[in-house]
Structure formats: structure tokens, C-alpha cells
Write a protein that binds this DNA or RNA. Structure first.
Lengths: 250, 250
DNA sequence: CTAGTGCACTGGTCGGACCAGTAGGCTACG
DNA sequence: CGTAGCCTACTGGTCCGACCAGTGCACTAG
């Protein structure tokens, strides 16, 4: 010990340095969404690398959701506003590769959703509360008239709640996890024999949550929402995993 | 309406189809972590595309954290086990580009951590509980002896808890968000004038949480953990954002 | 049997070429 | 004079062939 600590000189590839520079420019704000990068042929001059290298760098940036390029576009690649698409992508592969069970996903939804409701109970605006009410009303009419928009209305409800929580991270993760869960069990839901009963029960639960929020009782609303989601999804989850789910219920 | 619904024929690029096929092979399990892809020159024969196209596809796969390639390796690219690295990456850029505030990140940690504790209170093994106790003990000795390992021990504690929750998603997200938060305020923490007082208070809070878990009172442990994290981080958060944070406290 | 040396691969980079698109300026027609 | 249509100068997407610096393994010389 003592003596100068030399760092291992990892061979840094040319395209990586291109990625770094562009990334830096974007994250520092000197390149804003909507702006255009120079053309590939221009970039290869500026970075003094070959076009292959420029293209590989652009592929990486594109994979990270930072830019998009369109063939034939007289301008260069477009700098994109951040979207949770890549977050969504990596979480989806996480779910598939890492064998995330449906139970874990639903459990995570319960956590996120109940927290969002707890926050929304205190921080929501009246307009947002009205949105929630109209979403639930929409759920009800969907069931009454036999329309197939129950799911959409349900999603809309939870979207407003997530927005009202004021936490973008909660909002994004809610969105991502929900879409994964829905994709996993969309067929099962459609085939459920007691589907209408489940929907009616769900509506009741949503109304109870709204009532608690109206009364200003955030913790109660949060608890109710966990219970609601548990009741809605428990049927699709293997019995041995249900105890872990119900462990979330106070 | 009526008539055949034609889908817009989005020009699908060659390298994308290569990506899809390899991704499919990996996620379906026919290509397991540790296995090797054929060499680039072999792939360009199998897919009958040029090497440039193969390389662009590999860059995308690499950016998604699915494979890694090393120059000179006689074997092809290596299929990687999933790692939250890309999740971490996209969340970090989210934090930088989308202006995720420190308050939101800490709030999210409070949500994740308290839920993990709620679950761990019921699902933990005795060995895991012993690990938690030893982590807290380590925190204490670090403060007593003036060692700089308080942070590590703290991280170790929350790591055990996340593991004990039995939910891999909670575990991964906890890890990612925590490292981002720590990076954001590592300097501030080191410079805090009342640092030792904060540490002692934090230890007390951890012990209270442990006591509640020992008593089997998960909800209490969860509530205490939220309070603990709030007290520990509130000082670093601008006053106007603190109400949103404390809204999580029951 | 071991230590050293090639060799036959690997991925990384380069340069040049062609294609199918697009956008905008220009021309020719109304 | 205005507009519809073409034309050109770009763009990104793909291909090819070449070279380099590494790596591992087989082979050879000790």
C-alpha cells in the first residue's frame, strides 16, 4: 500500500467516446429535445472517426432512447425528450429473464399504488379528484352497458392518482409495472367466469377509496386500495404465493 | 369502416431484425448467460447481412445489457446474466434529464424501504434478522471508533431488509434508487456539521425498527422506518418540498 | 514435460460504394 | 401570376473489403 494507485486503463472504444460526448451534450442541456444532431457524415468529420463508428454510437444512443433517426431526413438525428420507454424495456426484460413472478409484480403494484393514494389524499387538487370520480363513473357505466372500456377507465383512475401523488418516479414505475402485469394476464382476465362480479366488486372498492380520500383519511384510503388490488388479482396468483401478498395488508 | 385494416408498414431495419432474433433466443432461454454468440463473421453468414449490420445489432444488445463483447476473444460475444445496470442507467438519466428532485427520490426510497420492512417483518428468516442486528451493531461501532464505515453498514442493513422482503423488484429498485440518492448527496453528507448526531439518531431509529420487527409489529416498523429516513434526509431537502415528504408519514 | 513462439482467429476501425428515401428548389404548365 | 409536378442534393441504411491490435491454442524447441 501507499504509492500511486494506478487505474486499469480499460480500452475505451472510439464509439463509446462519441456516445459520451453526445450524451453529455444532451444531459447538460446544450442539446435540447427537438433539436437535430449533425448528419452522420458531418459527425464523422467533427469526431474524426469513420462513419461506421458514428453509426454504432448512434445505435447506442438510440437504444438508450436519447435520439431517433429517420431515413431520408435531410436533418440529422432528432434529440428526443426523455421517455420511460427504455426504463420500461429494461424492466420488461427483467420480468422475463429474471423470472419475476406475477405475485411479485402485483405486490409491487400494491406498494406503488397505495403510496400514490396516500400522497394523493393530501396533495391532490380538486380537479384531479373530479377526474378520479369521473373515471370510476366511467367504470360503472362500462359494466352497466356491457362496454369493453372497464379496463381503460380503471387505468385512467390509477393514472390520475399517480399524477396527483406529485412523484414522477412513482408515476413512471406505476405505468411500467401495470402494463407488464396487464400483458401477463390479459387473456386470463377476459376468460374469467366471474368477471362481472369482479368488476362490480372493484368498483365498490374504488368508491370506498374515494370516500376515504374525500374524508381526508389517507392511510385508510391506502389500506383499502391494497385490499382492493389483492382481491382483484388474488385469483390469478398461485395459492402458495398469496401469503406473501397478503403480508402487505395491515 | 369495415374492409381490411391495413397496418402501416413501418420500415423495419435489418439490424433490428437481428436484434429481435437474438433477444428472442436469450429471453426464451435457448441462449443462457455465460454462453457465447457466434463470431460476427459467422453471424453475418447466418443472418445473411453485412458485418456492419451485425455490429450495429450487437451494439444495441450490448446497450441493453444482454451481451458483452471483448476484443480478441476467440469466442463470440458473451451472453450476460441480467443486471440492473441498464435499469440503473435509464433511471439515472431520468434523474438528470427529467429533473427528478432529491425529494422525489427520497420519497421513493421511503416507500420502497418501508414496504420492504413491512414484508420482512413477516417473511424474514432468523438468519436474516441476525444479519440486520449485526449491521446495526456495525453502524454503532463505526461511530464509536470514528471509522468511516457507517454508510456501508447502513447500506448492508437495508440490503438485508430488501432481500428479506422476498420481492426481487423491490430489491433491485431499492438498490438503484439508493445509489442515485447517495451519489447526489455524498458530498453534503460528508460536510454536514451535525453529522455525528445524525448518525447516532439514525442508529436509535434502526434499533427501534428492529425492536418492532422482533415484536412482530410490521406496520409499526414500517412507520418508524419512514420517519427515520425522513429525519435523516430532511436536512438536505429544500424546505418547500418537505411537506410532500412528510405526507407519507401517517 | 515445460517454456516459448507463432498462427489463426477475434472484435474495432476505416474508407468507399450503392440504394431508397425525403425535402425543397426549380421548371413548366395552367 | 400561381401552382402542380419534377429534379437534385442531400439523408440514413446497407454492403463490401481491408487493416490493426489483441487473444488463445497448438505446436515446437528446449
Amino acid at each position: 500500500m501507499g504509492g500511486p494507485r494506478f487505474e486499469p486503463v480499460r480500452a475505451v472504444r472510439a464509439y463509446e467516446r462519441v456516445v459520451e460526448q453526445v450524451e453529455e451534450a444532451i444531459e447538460s442541456g446544450s442539446l435540447s429535445p427537438g433539436e437535430r444532431l449533425p448528419s452522420e457524415r458531418e459527425l464523422m468529420v467533427q469526431f474524426s472517426v469513420s462513419r461506421s463508428t458514428v453509426r454504432e454510437a448512434l445505435r447506442v444512443l438510440q437504444a438508450r432512447g436519447l435520439v431517433r433517426s429517420r431515413p431520408g431526413d435531410p436533418n440529422g438525428a432528432e434529440v428526443l425528450p426523455f421517455s420511460p420507454a427504455t426504463l420500461h424495456k429494461s424492466m420488461t426484460t427483467l420480468a422475463r429473464v429474471e423470472e419475476l413472478s406475477l405475485a411479485e409484480l402485483v405486490q409491487f403494484r400494491m406498494v406503488l399504488d397505495s403510496s400514490a393514494i396516500l400522497l394523493a389524499a393530501r396533495l391532490r387538487t380538486d380537479a384531479q379528484f373530479a377526474e378520479m370520480e369521473s373515471a370510476v363513473a366511467h367504470m360503472r357505466t362500462a359494466v352497466e352497458t356491457g362496454q369493453d372500456t372497464f379496463g381503460e377507465a380503471d387505468v385512467a383512475f390509477h393514472d390520475v392518482v399517480a399524477r396527483a401523488s406529485g412523484n414522477k418516479l412513482i408515476q413512471i414505475c406505476t405505468d411500467v409495472v401495470r402494463s407488464i402485469v396487464l400483458k401477463l394476464i390479459s387473456e386470463k382476465i377476459a376468460d374469467a367466469p366471474d368477471r362481472e362480479a369482479l368488476m362490480r366488486q372493484s368498483i365498490r372498492h374504488h368508491e370506498e377509496v374515494l370516500a376515504a380520500m374525500r374524508a381526508g383519511d389517507g392511510p385508510l384510503a391506502a389500506r383499502l386500495s391494497k385490499k382492493a388490488m389483492y382481491d382483484y388479482y388474488a385469483g390469478y396468483i398461485p395459492a402458495p404465493e398469496r401469503p406473501a401478498l397478503s403480508a402487505l395488508l395491515d
